[in-house]
Write a protein that binds this DNA or RNA. Structure first.
Lengths: 110, 110
DNA sequence: AAAATACTTAAGTTTTTACTTGACAAATAA
DNA sequence: TTATTTGTCAAGTAAAAACTTAAGTATTTT
């Protein structure tokens, strides 16, 4: 039951609805921090903190040129998460294939 | 930028590493609450609270017979999450197809 | 040079979340 | 019947997360 530190960060980052909304906004294309902040009812500083979480998780990449920091989605960022989902699914399905649902329950639940 | 309440609960539920570990344990097959709790270094009550979050999000289903509550994974539970990931991906990829990455940045970042 | 823009940083506050404790109830076992 | 198992509930505590405020820095603009 060990886990990679990064998948922890990814799931944690997207557990917050504001950060998910930010990812949705960023899907429109790369944009500055202040542009990112526009639709949100909170201070710039708060938005920046959310962006940091997203960046540390590898979901977002940023680059500062001049006084403007441009944010973009890191397309491979969700790979680990998708893999986790696939893994869960394949394990259940293997189980369900091997035995009938009820039979399995009786067998392993004693 | 509206969102379904359920996807919120799913992402939030899996944002916690303990609950993710519980899903992994439950992948082994249906089991009782106390069996679920075994590997975790916390009280039964805490585990039950995590299970409630998982159940409210639709990821887990439980049924009580006698004094034993049996928990099982709800296989469709992760569908909404996977769909969200797919949606993000398809939007980025459509963007990257339409325009070159750098060109797009210059265009929309002014 | 002065003012405005676009962040950045640190510190503090508020809110939420995770977890514990302890008392209790129902079902099963002795 | 008594004891044990299996879980439930409510309340409280402690830690983490989200958010604000305020002061500061570097870059443009005027």
């Amino acid at each position: 039951m060990k886990k990679k530190p990064n998948i922890d960060r990814i799931f944690r980052a997207l557990g917050d609805p504001t950060r998910r909304a930010m990812m949705e906004k960023l899907s429109q294309g790369p944009m500055s921090v202040s542009r990112m902040a526009e639709p949100f009812d909170m201070t710039l500083a708060a938005v920046v903190q959310h962006l940091q979480v997203l960046e540390e998780s590898g979901l977002v990449q940023t680059e500062k040129v001049g006084r403007v920091r441009t944010c973009r989605i890191e397309p491979s960022g969700l790979d680990a998460m998708e893999q986790w989902i696939r893994d869960r699914r394949s394990i259940w399905e293997r189980r369900l294939d091997r035995l009938g649902d009820l039979l399995a329950e009786q067998d392993e639940n004693r």
